[in-house]
Design a protein around this nucleic acid. Structure first.
Lengths: 138, 138
DNA sequence: ATATGTGCAAACTGTTTGCAGCCGC
DNA sequence: GCGGCTGCAAACAGTTTGCACATAT
């Protein structure tokens, strides 16, 4: 579990005013590395903050993205997912249960350096398949 | 340029009735490896086929996907792109001009075999950055 | 008092669905 | 004539935008 102050520090380090929704959303992302969708974040927090709106979640996530506090993940084209992990890693999405797992793989070693004049800013590695849980169940 | 018969053969091999829209859409994907969106495919073909509808493009692409004639690509979460190339390769999307380039990289060698019970069905490698053209221009 | 954050409602985009007409065999 | 292909129109989901109210300094 992450220390609650962690999100506060991060906000300060980027000069983002630490409003209550912002703290809570960042905290949620730091504590839950489940790559949640906007909807999941909203539903998880609206209980505790009944006035929270999805617009605020969208606004806040965009702010975090711009300040590189979080990353957005697009494995599937219809759903945007978010993650507060900074270092790049691989993702595995189970086509059966939909869960997304992290893979600790060295992405940096992959095709870095000069690529005929192409500058690489971001690398993404996505796998799809059947996870352990699901293959044992069938 | 691809031989026009190529698409016909592919349709036959999957037992898909070769209707005019189907031939044309598959032909377009085989001749244009630009990873087009549904809109781009539609706009490119509607001139020649004025009655073509986007629904047909969607239907047809879904049919091709189910029969593994094409692949769908999701670098950005809002746009689905399609490609008729069978063998997996890396993609590079320029954040400046939006063009997508192919990378011939050996994806198969990456983390294959048994992964603690996870079965990998599909591997995707996406890079983002600035392409040669754009970095020379600035 | 001013600037900024929040959140409702409406607009918008990409995609899916229901259904009626059409075509080929 | 039948099954399946096509395509209009409407529904739908995720996201964005406009704007008014609230809040903090």
């Amino acid at each position: 579990m992450n220390n609650p102050d962690h999100s506060l520090e991060s906000l300060h380090s980027k000069n983002i005013k630490p409003s209550y929704p912002r703290i809570k959303i960042l905290e949620y992302l730091m504590n839950n590395h489940t790559h949640p969708t906007v909807d999941e974040i909203y539903l998880a927090l609206v209980e505790e903050m009944p006035t929270l709106s999805k617009t605020t979640v969208y606004n806040t996530l965009k702010l975090f993205l711009d300040n590189e506090l979080i990353k957005s993940i697009s494995i599937e084209n219809n759903e945007s997912r978010y993650d507060a992990t900074i270092h790049t890693h691989g993702h595995f999405k189970c086509e059966c249960c939909g869960d997304i797992y992290d893979f600790d793989m060295n992405v940096d070693g992959l095709l870095s350096g000069d690529l005929h004049g192409f500058t690489i800013i971001e690398k993404s590695i996505y796998f799809k398949g059947i996870c352990k849980k699901c293959s044992l169940r069938s």
